[in-house]
């Protein structure tokens, strides 16, 4: 197995509002190997995106704050960097792709300008070289006729093309780590499959590590080597993708996998998990999934389950597992 690129240890991120402290991410740990795709899965508001933004140290200020933990990228603890040093990491070492391609590009600047800006900033190139780099970034994402498209504005492009441009911006300085925050959710199914295939290919070419944030286990099966399942700010299970599908140990993981619609099963209706995730302002003292769990025991309501490594690389946080 290749080297560990990113190590997140006991990360806690909170939002401080008038209503109180929202513990959006509450003590999560995981690692990502070089050149690997690591899935971060869970339903809306479970803390996936906040985890991504925490790694970049770009939480919405002043409400959002990292209150504890370490984020170690290639031996450097990002938490200890100054603001300026952190800025030099963004876009160069770590990049991120946002969910909605229709809103994540600036409408008043050309595509070439928006990609070139990153290139100029991090690589310190002269103007004529910048254009070459921009074209090569567009080519990496297989955008047709890149020489023509650099003078286009985002509104002249389709959603799928725009998301490729966002990908070009992210990959323009060949980062070591790419955080992809539901990059395919806003795209339609065929474009989605193309985009994922494209990223598998880019990963082969550049050896970039990807944290793939999604709620869709179908997408996970397609691209991720390993996956962590998040629920209400905590990671409940981490394993290799094949293990997760074959032998999920946490009831929440099983339920999530079970709720993926499948063509080879004849279900009358889609499976759904009863109830709602707990409020992050008022978390239960025990396991956070206990109120919705089909296998709940008495201890689940009282005490938080520890994280247990049941086999190599497979860890679960559930009282059922010992």
């Amino acid at each position: 197995m290749s080297k560990i690129l990113l190590q997140v240890e006991d990360l806690c991120t909170s939002f401080f509002t008038r209503a109180g402290e929202f513990k959006a991410v509450d003590g999560i740990s995981f690692y990502v190997h070089e050149g690997e795709t690591f899935g971060l899965v869970g339903e809306s508001a479970c803390g996936k995106t906040v985890t991504g933004l925490s790694i970049l140290r770009l939480l919405p200020e002043p409400a959002g704050r990292i209150v504890g933990g370490k984020i170690i990228l290639d031996g450097t603890n990002l938490m200890e960097l100054s603001k300026k040093e952190m800025r030099a990491y963004r876009g160069k070492m770590i990049s991120m792709i946002l969910q909605d391609p229709m809103t994540s590009l600036n409408p008043v600047y050309t595509v070439g300008n928006q990609i070139g800006e990153s290139v100029r900033l991090h690589q310190g190139l002269r103007d004529d070289k910048v254009e070459d780099e921009v074209i090569s970034a567009l080519r990496l994402l297989r955008i047709p006729a890149p020489e023509m498209r650099i003078r286009d504005y985002p509104f002249q492009m389709s959603g799928g093309m725009r998301q490729r441009v966002v990908g070009s911006i992210a990959m323009s300085c060949r980062p070591r780590l790419l955080i992809a925050d539901e990059p395919t959710t806003a795209l339609d199914a065929t474009i989605q499959a193309q985009y994922i295939a494209l990223f598998k290919d880019i990963q082969k070419q550049t050896d970039v590590a990807i944290i793939f944030i999604t709620h869709d286990f179908g997408v996970v099966a397609n691209i991720c080597q390993r996956v962590a399942v998040m629920y209400a700010g905590k990671i409940v299970e981490t394993a290799a993708t094949s293990t997760i599908f074959k032998a999920p140990k946490h009831p929440y993981t099983s339920a999530l996998i079970h709720s993926v619609p499948r063509l080879d099963r004849k279900d009358d209706r889609l499976y759904s998990i009863e109830g709602q995730p707990p409020s992050l302002l008022d978390l239960p003292p025990g396991c956070r999934f206990a109120p919705r769990c089909p296998d709940v025991q008495e201890i689940c309501h009282k005490q938080q389950p520890p994280i247990v490594e049941i086999s190599d690389g497979h860890s679960v946080s559930c009282w059922k597992v010992k």
Binding site: L56, L58, R87, A88, Y89, R90, G91, K92, S95, M96, L98, D100, T103, S104, L105, N106, P107, Y109, E117, S118, L121, H122, V166, I169, A170
Partner: peptide
């Protein structure tokens, strides 16, 4: 609040470029 301002920060641009350009 927009996503493209978020993206500009993700690129590592200094705050003054984020505000005065983007």
């Amino acid at each position: 609040e927009s996503e493209y301002v978020k993206l500009a920060r993700i690129k590592g641009l200094p705050e003054k470029t984020v505000i005065w350009k983007h």
